[in-house]
Amino acid sequence: MGETLLRAYEYATDHQEEFLRALGEHLLLVGLALGIATLICVPLGIVTSRSRAVAATVINIFNSLRVVPSLAILFLAIPYFGLSLTSAWIALTILALPPILINTDTAFRTINPAIKEVAYGMGMTGQQRLWRVEAPLALPVIIAGIRTATVEVIASATLAAFIGSGGLGIYVTRGFALYDNAILLVGAVPVALLALLAEMVMSRLQRAVQPPA
């Protein structure tokens, strides 16, 4: 194990330029998918939280989507978009949707109605209530959703190399092709660290936006 790790480290330093490019691609892939998913799901979640009928169907669909293995979703993009970057980021965006939507919906739905009524009684307009009262209260739960999505997408972006996306997963596909454990580790170790780092940063952020009790 120690020797393989050492070889992995040497491989990464020997291919430093490529490694850094792969890392950059990986981050871009993850960031793009999360950004688009957040832009879609936060407004959608606000809408679903206000209507029982819409919520029931939309949330059910997204819950089922969440149950489908990520590898299946990634590979199903291939018949439509080929072995390409487009396939990868469409699939990754789809994978990021459910946690963000479900958390946004829950966040806005569970706000104490008394608080909303007080805001209304104070003469706030709908927009004001949304931005000044509801959004700050919902934010920690929304960020928790983005956090779950981030860790999932970092993992799935590694698998995305199988469908030709680039990123750190290229070392996984290469390691399998060459039967070389060291090359596999060049992909696995950074991805594991990236996931742990993202989890730490996002949970800090979540605590930072928590409104005082």
């Binding site: 194990m1 393989t4 860790v151 970092i154 993992a155 590694t158 698998l159 996984v172 390691g175 454990n181 596999l184 580790l185 992909g187 696995a188 170790v189 991805v191 594991a192 996931a195 742990l196 989890e199």
Partner: peptide, 18 residues
């Protein structure tokens, strides 16, 4: 929780030598 955060494919690769 830390183990769970590690992506499954990475964990499988890390366990591979063992």
């Amino acid at each position: 929780g830390i183990l769970y955060t590690i992506p499954s494919i990475a964990l499988m690769i890390l366990l591979l030598p063992i």
